[in-house]
Design a protein around this nucleic acid. Structure first.
Lengths: 273, 273
DNA sequence: ACGCCATGTTCCATATACCGGAACGATGAT
DNA sequence: ATCATCGTTCCGGTATATGGAACATGGCGT
């Protein structure tokens, strides 16, 4: 929607969503971060939701076994069922664990922060990230979003689209300028994308954040339509274009490893070969 | 290929609830148990829900970031937000982890299965349980429910109520008879409860399941109204009344340990100096 | 004892979201 | 070209959520 809005407010602990169910999830997130039991009133103050509404939500969660109440009904805490859900999720989520391990190994090899990305709408979403140990570094969180036209992964996703499809996506908004290097001209972007196609990898040379250099490849897929990228991000001070290109073999190896993991987690697709 | 009907009814995988939100949770539980990505169709088959309904639910979860979709939108898997929710829950849930450790230690000390219980409505709910290693044992799951009048923990909960309150609870239904030993007479139960009050512990002598002997104490609380009990359960074959009484000191120590943990997790109550 | 305040609970008219059969669309196999 | 399969959209009827106001409870001070 609008540009990034940084909040310096402590935290209003927003609980919202477009639909009742999403609000419940949002509430659970607030609850999950607590390491103490809590009362209805404290939640009212923390979230700003109307008391009867919150009362109903908590009641609903309790009767479902997601929350538990203290004997006198004054305090709530996470319930049996919620804990089991969390355990099941983390236990069975072998995919994420394996991906994360690959990422960690890559970071060790190249000594720079790396992340796994996906295209979500017209933006690039950071799925996972491992930071380098080096003292000078960019701190970016998993879950962040970056426009496709000024990120290495984004250009890769754009490059594998049909021209018409790409046009449709980019036409929705002008190419916003973040730095002096940001490509804001459609034709220039098309030329860049041609180059990305030829090379098989993409580069972001301070196009989103000043001082941030980035190189990425796609996690390959048999059908040629990948939704996952893997990228190395480093300060230009430490990593120039040449040095980044030297990372490419390691980067491609990591991408292949992730491809193997993902293929394994796919339901018995035909692809017998 | 012939229509392979592999399923010998492995599981109906019921997804339901009284309210739309609860059904969503129920769906998430099914999903949480998967270690592979899945398609809409596969869920339709697994749950029996109408396709448009499931489609809407998945869409809702995806747009909330609880699920993620593959590039071509054919397969779903757990999303970033859901994983983070699960992690937060388990990370901050110091309470449950610590309780479980106490329970494990108790089982080690006495060599019999133990569980932590709570009163929920008029029934006793097993919050957590650790099994003994002994080959002969009762297998009871956390989450099970037992009527209060024929369980050791239940009698403790009843004993700390005001008489009127207790009457109100018990009047709702007759005292159901599970075994020859089950107390089914109100006056006899009152006498039993008097004894429980005097002793500070309660016993279930094959009153719920034939062959199951059980001894319990409350996890003490400053205000004298505890909603948590802790119990040892064993086959009568191995544990008689005398032997059970010998377990009491260890049982009380465990109860105190849990009380300390819970007090710690309580919000800054007005500190009854 | 008494009233007072903070907190939890219930009511209910209105607004909203959900439901799912049917029809349509997209994709790939034959 | 034709069919089969799976994903997606439509839409009117119905169940659910919403939250202001009022009520209930219990702890505390006087």
């Amino acid at each position: 929607m609008s540009e990034t809005k940084l909040k310096s407010i402590p935290e209003p602990a927003r609980v919202d969503g477009d639909t009742p169910a999403l609000r419940l999830f949002s509430l659970l997130e607030v609850i999950a971060r607590k390491d103490q039991f809590f009362s209805l009133q404290s939640l009212v103050e923390e979230t700003g939701l109307p008391k009867p509404t919150l009362h109903r939500m908590l009641q609903q969660l309790e009767s479902a076994g997601m929350l538990q109440r203290d004997a006198d009904g004054r305090f709530y805490g996470p319930g049996l069922r919620l804990r089991r859900l969390a355990e099941d999720l983390l236990l069975n989520n072998t995919v994420h664990g394996a991906r994360h391990a690959v990422l960690r190994k890559l970071v060790e090899e190249v000594g720079e922060s790396c992340n796994i990305t996906a295209l979500s709408g017209s933006e690039v979403l950071y799925l996972d990230r491992v930071e380098t140990q080096a003292p000078l570094r960019f701190y970016l969180h998993p879950g962040s979003r970056v426009p496709a036209h000024c990120s290495a992964s984004g250009k890769l996703f754009l490059a594998q689209m049909m021209p018409a499809q790409r046009r449709r996506l980019l036409d929705r908004a002008p190419l916003e300028k973040y730095t002096a290097q940001t490509i804001t001209d459609f034709d220039a972007l098309e030329r860049e994308i041609e180059s990305v196609k030829r090379e098989g990898h993409a580069i972001d040379n301070e196009e989103f954040l000043p001082g941030l250099f980035c190189i990425a490849v796609l996690v390959p897929r048999p059908d040629g339509r990948s939704n996952t990228g893997i990228a190395i991000q480093a300060p230009v001070m430490r990593v120039s274009r040449d040095k980044a290109l030297a990372f490419l073999p390691a980067l491609k190896r990591a991408a292949d490893a992730i491809a193997a993991i993902d293929a394994d987690a796919m339901p018995a697709a035909r692809t017998a070969a």
